[in-house]
Design a protein around this nucleic acid. Structure first.
Lengths: 222, 222, 222, 222
DNA sequence: GATGAATGAGTATTCATTCAT
DNA sequence: AATGAATGAATACTCATTCAT
């Protein structure tokens, strides 16, 4: 939020740590490499952070609040619940890619090491997921969506996004992700079952995957 | 396949490595700890495997072929495409939990280190996803499912499963996962959109998440 | 001597050890690599030799007796003391190169580790140097050579040879060594001092080194 | 040169490494033992040097420049070419003994491992040999020496010295080396051939070797 | 605010060697 | 005669961290 008040050294440490965490994960992050990356001496880092874990937690907090802010802002620009969902998928996809899908993995790694941090992270995740929960709850209240288990649905949605980001990083495909957004929104809304309601709005083509299925995706469905 | 022919020491190394990889990931896996865990001397491990990476690759191969075998077997026991999907979700969920969601993370870690292993892993993943691709393609051919992008859909489905497993491991909730299977199958089939076709079959309750949404899930829908 | 009576496995071990000692020295010789090189299992090597040191000593003994035999044989083919010296230089140069100057280095390495082996090695070296000692002593007795300290002179001569071999191995120059033999014999006989007796017999050219000094070397001087 | 500016820890590492290299060679030099010898923790050594090879190269560079400096200084104190040669032999002999004849062996060992270091070492050796090359070239220009191949001759000379040092270390004889210097200078100047010019100046006795040859050596021959 | 120096405990890996078969 | 399996001790090197300056 008020990053202007944070010392530039601290910021450079967090930036470097974010980059290296994305590459190597928590256990693979070396303080020596971190020092080299941010241009400070190793000892200087300990002037700003108590230990390695504190750095990583700071990175996670900063990233989470940024992602949350971006997600909220993106959703706020849309009126319609469905368009809000599209905005969320798009934003979350982009930000996750930028962070090299770091967060999910780092959390899991830290978690294995530090059981007492679970609650802290659960809170973070609640804050993280809650904007999307709100959107779906609103949709249900408006009669747009059926009364699904909202929390579970949000997990599912984020799972789809992360899975796709992971796949892209594995294969180094650098596409825009538009097709992914269309596919994911369509799947989230209508599923794969054949019924009259959903198919009539489908009309785009896919280029990402080999087997083309021309009828996939929903373009700005109302 | 023919594990009976493999020496017990080798098996014990792989077993221990599988366990520790689930806990700590690739970088966090220590050869000292592995030796303790499998009851052999450190040097003995190197009698069976060239290096740490070779161990981890063996674990991954073994797990992948096991998961694939289980998934295929589970699906083969069902006639109906939808029931096949349910079986896949159930099996994959259970096996992923047993392996502490290890595979996806380890692959990503290794991948960061060894660019030339990408192709190998892509092949593995193809084999891994292909049974599910087949089911959905059959469903589409039978007119049961709409013509979605199948490969993308499979990614989405596995993403949902992995995400949920990760969440459960984070919170140490040890439920059976039945609710999860119902939710996921329902979401995959119908999405969240409100329409006449899907809502009438919903009738179960959720205990997993705090906010209860009584109408979620599809029980053995045909 | 009677190598026909030695088992082929034992011979292959010694051959492999000789090769690797030349490459890596004593400390750098690994039993694993030795086993690979000679095509036997590590444990099999211990069937033939008590330990690593015993192997190396066997190699040294074998090489030394071979070099001694070759040197003696080469000298025996010549009548003249000077021609005997030329033969010795030539033979010793070739055999040292073939063994990658191994012996001198290995002896020094072992010596650092095993003080009680000194006497053994002194005996070996005495046997090793004695043929040349004999030649020079004969030359002195015949009034051909001046009464130098023979033992020291032999050390000097072998020093020159080893130094040149080391230089050639360092620079990977693969010359025949004829120039070297001429140079060394000339230096040994006449030194560098300018006087009437020696210069008149010099008539060959040098190609080995950059600065050419056309008057170097003695061709079959009588 | 400016060793006063180098940290005492770094110097103590190099000193210890020089000592151990002389004893055990490159492969036999253990970082653990080095740490013990210089009184620092293993990890501290890596604060000053990137790896073992860097340490050894530093030792070699330091020793080579020291030997070169001493050799040049010793030669500069003499007017006469022959006396310069005597000074060089004396100095080189002493310094090589002090370093346990380490350099030649270490270079050969490293060279086997690192082909791309050859050129570096050739340069070093050029600088190392060049002072002596200069002396002999001057002697030839002055008509004192016959026109031998100078570079080869320098190799031969250093070979004699190193060989003798090695012999002394093997037998732990701790003599002053005066006899050796006389012998070597005499051999270098006049060789062993019987002729009028050289014998008349010989008049000393040898104690180093068993067989005494009373007429060896040149005492300050002009 | 920043760092060079230092370290104990750790890393993955290799060592020479033994032994039951 | 030959070896697969096993190991304690060593290898070079890195770790996160501290502290005096």
């Amino acid at each position: 939020m008020l990053e202007g008040l944070i010392s530039p050294s601290k910021t450079s440490i967090l930036d470097a740590a974010e980059k290296l965490l994305g590459k190597y994960g928590y256990a693979g992050l070396s303080m020596r490499e971190l020092a080299e990356e941010c241009g400070l001496a190793k000892a200087t880092i300990y002037h700003y952070f108590h230990d390695k874990q504190a750095i990583v937690l700071s990175v996670l907090e900063r990233d989470m609040s940024r992602i949350r802010a971006s997600t909220v802002a993106a959703a706020a620009q849309e009126e319609n619940c469905i368009e809000k969902l599209r905005a969320v998928i798009q934003t979350h996809y982009v930000m996750t890619r930028e962070r090299h899908a770091m967060i999910i993995n780092v959390i899991r790694e830290i978690n294995g090491l530090e059981p007492h941090l679970q609650e802290l992270k659960r809170k973070h995740m609640a804050a993280y997921y809650s904007p999307v929960v709100k959107i779906i709850e609103d949709g249900i209240a408006q009669g747009l969506f059926r009364p699904v288990n909202v929390e579970m649905t949000v997990f599912s949605l984020f799972g789809m996004i992360h899975s796709f980001v992971a796949h892209c990083m594995l294969t180094d495909e650098a596409e825009s992700g538009d097709d992914f957004v269309d596919h994911t929104l369509s799947l989230l809304l209508y599923g794969i079952n054949q019924d009259g309601a959903s198919t009539e709005t489908l009309n785009s083509e896919d280029v990402v995957f080999s087997q083309s299925h021309p009828h996939e995706s929903v373009k700005h469905a109302a």
